[in-house]
């Protein structure tokens, strides 16, 4: 029996199921939160992608949305929340501050959250437009679909 084909089919099925039931944890810190709100609300409606229900407990969420500038003071908190999330988990860096630090190159700001936690999807923009966010979300879904399911 060809188990390889079987597992890849199963993987595809699990991936399909997972990508449409994204429970997100919005780690909202700054300006990007406004665009996050706009994306989540009725006008842009993130619910269409099965990501409409934010869970405010890291234990119950699959995707960590890091929305807004991360300062050195909050960095340990972010790391702790990431560690508390159960596998499989993904991280979205929302906004240029989380991608690289943006134009906040100073003593207080972390120069990209990927120096602290692994990141799956980067959504640049200061802040990214809601369309841009949805594009990032679709890219995350593609990634979830195609990856090897644990």
């Amino acid at each position: 029996m060809n188990t390889g084909s079987f597992t890849s089919k199963l993987d595809a099925m699990i991936g399909w199921a997972r990508k449409f039931s994204i429970f997100q944890y919005p780690f909202v810190t700054a300006c990007c939160g406004m665009e996050y709100m706009a994306t989540a609300c009725s006008h842009y409606d993130v619910d269409r992608f099965g990501a409409g229900l934010p869970r405010f407990s890291p234990r119950q969420s699959d995707v960590l949305f890091v929305v807004g500038t991360i300062s050195h003071k909050i960095a340990p908190v972010l790391k702790q929340i990431y560690d508390q999330m159960a596998d499989p988990k993904w991280v979205v860096a929302f906004g240029v501050c989380t991608c690289t630090g943006g134009f906040y190159d100073n003593y207080a700001t972390v120069q990209g959250i990927d120096t602290i936690i692994p990141v799956d999807v980067y959504i640049p923009g200061c802040p990214p437009r809601p369309e841009n966010v949805l594009d990032g979300l679709i890219k995350l879904q593609e990634k979830i679909q195609k990856q090897k399911q644990e």
Partner: peptide, 20 residues
Amino acid sequence: HPLRKDYPYNKRQPLIGPKN
């Protein structure tokens, strides 16, 4: 004290993670 003029604007003192 960061707003003193002799404190370099990008001298980071991270709690975790690299200094970059």
